[in-house]
């Protein structure tokens, strides 16, 4: 099974089966929905800011999709907790990819980036932070 472990590390399967920050945040300060038209993966992301209106206090997500898209989003919710909107808006995708820690083909990269892209769109809508230009999967997100 070694070669498959390389593809689906234990930690990924764990995040997939027991996603962190899973759910809906009622009355969220920022939210967005993202879709990957290639495989129909979907995530909705909800953000609550701390009293300073900048620091991310809580992130929740809700979605359906492959193990990579859902696990990556779950990892992301842990990663961005306590950071500011501005910091997250410029969060380098490699930081998330390092966390995921498995080689990804271009198609799977889109799955992995879905949560981060959607989060950046949510922050953009709420705070006017820069959009994740050129990020995979972004062109299909609806900015409404």
């Amino acid at each position: 099974m070694n070669e498959f472990e390389q593809m689906y590390r234990e930690v990924i399967l764990d995040h997939y089966k027991n996603p962190r920050g899973h759910g809906v945040l009622e009355g969220a300060d920022a939210e967005a929905e993202g879709q990957n038209p290639l495989c129909g993966d979907e995530v909705s992301i909800y953000v609550a800011f701390a009293d300073d209106g900048e620091t991310i206090e809580e992130v929740k997500f809700f979605g359906r999709g492959c193990a990579i898209s859902q696990a990556a989003t779950s990892m992301l919710t842990e990663m961005v907790q306590g950071r500011t909107a501005t910091e997250v808006a410029s969060l380098d995708k490699d930081e998330l990819l390092d966390e995921i820690g498995i080689p990804l083909t271009p198609v799977r990269l889109k799955c992995a980036m879905l949560g981060l892209t959607t989060l950046k769109v949510a922050l953009h809508k709420a705070k006017g932070t820069p959009l994740p230009r050129g990020l995979a999967g972004f062109d299909e997100l609806e900015l409404t």
């Binding site: 495989c39 993966d41 492959c66 083909t105």
Partner: peptide, 21 residues
């Protein structure tokens, strides 16, 4: 199990299928 995950593990075994809508 999401078809993307199925297809990826199959690919490793030399099996090419389509996964998606």
């Amino acid at each position: 199990i999401h078809p993307h995950d199925v297809a990826q593990i199959l690919d490793r075994q030399g099996v090419a299928i389509r996964a998606g809508h």
